[in-house]
Nucleic acid binder design. Structure first.
Lengths: 112, 112
DNA sequence: TTAATACTTTCCGCAATGGCTAAGTATTCA
DNA sequence: TGAATACTTAGCCATTGCGGAAAGTATTAA
């Protein structure tokens, strides 16, 4: 299962930070400028910008500069890739549990 | 959306490494000893063990030692928590797109 | 009781991360 | 034109992460 797909490295690493997850959450509501994004955080702007860059590198977010304002928006592909990886594994796990249960059931039948 | 829930920090950070994702994949097939896990990797045992420890700290994996063998198994809760966070956000994103589409549709209606 | 197995601990080195401040650039407002 | 705004770059620092080698401990096999 699961080839080494290093896109996931970046996506999961990006999501490992609470500040970045909060940024992703806010961008799910709609595009925002860097200063709008920084507003709820008690953090210097350059630090926040670094998080935005990490999110961009991971493909979770894209941004575009118009005039002096950089507008950030969410980019769903990377998020969906991460979702898909996890979904597959939870599914695989549950399938295995089902097989195990069926197996135990058969054992019981034999005993009686 | 999404309070700071630092359980996710660990889970996503753990999944950010391809070696650890591969370990999770293999454990989805069933419990394995540390040496069984290490077998496909070109990596010293202590290094691999470190990955297992990271997975344990994140709650994705648990292990138990019997005799001289440590057996590792997958622990689905943390994986489901990560799954749930992503699912919520993909859903939020899609909902927003729907609203946007509906809005654009209304604009068009007005024009005609 | 000796030898092999299966980890486990300790310590090293290097690169990346996450925060900061200070100073710089490019736009826009007055 | 001059000042305010919105980033942006550069550099510093402490911590963490990922790999290794070497040596140690506990179990099991012979």
């Amino acid at each position: 299962m699961a080839k080494y797909s290093s896109d996931l490295d970046g996506a999961f690493a990006a999501l490992a930070d609470p500040t970045r997850r909060a940024i992703v959450s806010r961008l799910c509501e709609g595009p925002k400028s860097v200063s709008e994004l920084s507003e709820p955080f008690d953090m210097a702007l350059p630090s926040l910008l670094k998080h935005v860059r990490v999110l961009e590198r991971s493909g979770l977010v894209s941004s575009e500069k118009t005039g002096r304002v950089r507008t950030c928006r969410i980019e769903p592909h990377a998020l969906q890739a991460a979702e898909s990886w996890i979904n597959r594994h939870v599914a695989a796990w549950e399938k295995r549990l089902d097989r195990l249960e069926a197996h135990i059931h058969r054992m019981k039948m034999k005993r009686n």
